[in-house]
């Protein structure tokens, strides 16, 4: 075998000073972040590694995996309520998001003020988790599925409005131009030129959002906003973990089925 007679090592990689400095800054920032995180966070380790934890573990975990079938009818009824909440909320959001989507689309309103303020309100809504909205609605109108529906309806506008505006911005404007050239008015253009182009995507996104909303409405009951979460809250307080196990099982099955149907429908639409 040919071995080099003398060891010639490859030349050292030349790195620009800018890159070296950048890498060091990143490293220092990361280190600082972790030092801050781990020195500051208050975790009571003696509570976590205690006999109580062990007792909880041996009680909670086996019960979770042996669901209480007696509460299955109740759990299914409440899961039905959850699905209904998600449906009502998503449908309301899907309609309310349409004007937002149009306002935020650059090719519909040629005004920066309208575009940005619509985009900004959509972003603002998206910053809040739905359950936080639910907390406020529960405080306003009392514990009820209605509070959950409102939370979902408001919370979903953010994402749907944003996606709608992207769909609108990507449509074929030549169709609109030619309708305009034919002397169509704004309303006619909307119904013959724009709506037919965006409907399939709008629908597909609304169905996708329904998937997300089903997931989030399962937990709204934890703070009194209806659905299967209420059962989980009560069972946890009574430490009936086998009932929680039943609720969990139903959530997993129903969410999986909904995801499956939703992706099937969306594939058919687009």
């Amino acid at each position: 075998m040919a071995q080099p007679e003398t060891l010639v090592l490859p030349p050292k990689k030349k790195r620009s000073t800018k890159k070296v400095v950048r890498n060091w800054i990143i490293a220092v920032l990361l280190l600082a972040m972790y030092v801050w995180t781990f020195s500051d966070i208050g975790i009571n380790w003696s509570q976590i590694f205690s006999e109580r934890t062990l007792n909880n573990m041996t009680r909670v975990v086996p019960q979770l995996f042996s669901p209480e079938w007696a509460v299955a009818p109740d759990a299914m009824r409440l899961m039905g309520e959850t699905l209904a909440m998600a449906y009502t909320g998503t449908l309301m959001a899907a309609l309310l998001a349409v004007p937002f989507g149009f306002f935020a689309a650059k090719n519909m309103f040629n005004s920066r003020l309208i575009n940005t303020s619509a985009k900004w309100s959509l972003d603002a809504i998206r910053a809040f988790p739905e359950i936080m909205l639910a907390l406020i609605f529960v405080a306003a109108i009392g514990p009820s599925p209605f509070a959950g529906v409102l939370a979902i309806a408001v919370g979903s506008i953010g994402m749907l409005g944003k996606l709608y505006s992207e769909v609108i911005e990507s449509i074929d404007m030549q169709v609109v131009d030619s309708l305009e050239a034919n002397g169509a008015n704004k309303i006619q253009i909307l119904f013959y030129g724009i709506i037919p182009q965006v409907i399939p995507e709008f629908l597909s996104y609304a169905i996708y959002r329904y998937e997300i909303d089903v997931r989030s409405s399962t937990i709204l009951g934890l703070i009194g906003a209806g659905g299967i979460g209420m059962m989980i809250q009560i069972s946890t307080m009574n430490r009936n973990w086998d009932e929680v196990g039943m609720a969990l099982l139903i959530i997993i099955i129903v969410v999986t089925v909904i995801d499956y149907f939703s992706s099937y429908l969306r594939k058919r639409i687009v």
């Binding site: 975790i43 934890t53 909670v60 997931r215 989030s216 937990i219 934890l222 946890t236 929680v244 997993i252």
Partner: peptide
Amino acid sequence: TIPDLLLAVIFVGIFGIGA
């Protein structure tokens, strides 16, 4: 498929209240 808050409920049941 399990929502985050539901996992939190279960872990609070095991490890108690806290971060």
